[in-house]
Amino acid sequence: MNVLIYLIPIALAMGGLGLVTFLWSLKSGQYDDLEGSSWRVLDDGEDRPET
């Protein structure tokens, strides 16, 4: 059962990473316009990031 010593922290860290990523994406405004994003993905015009 010694393997648990690695597995549990790894599992928790991976879950925590997901949580942190979600919180970051929320903070950076990625959920502010879900309807718009679903259209923007189809737009094949200029898609370089804005300066």
């Binding site: 502010d32 316009d33 879900l34 309807e35 718009g36 259209w39 804005e50």
Partner: peptide, 9 residues
């Protein structure tokens, strides 16, 4: 300088 449309709102 910047313009962004929010479709949801």
């Amino acid at each position: 300088q910047r313009a962004r449309v929010n479709l949801s709102t």
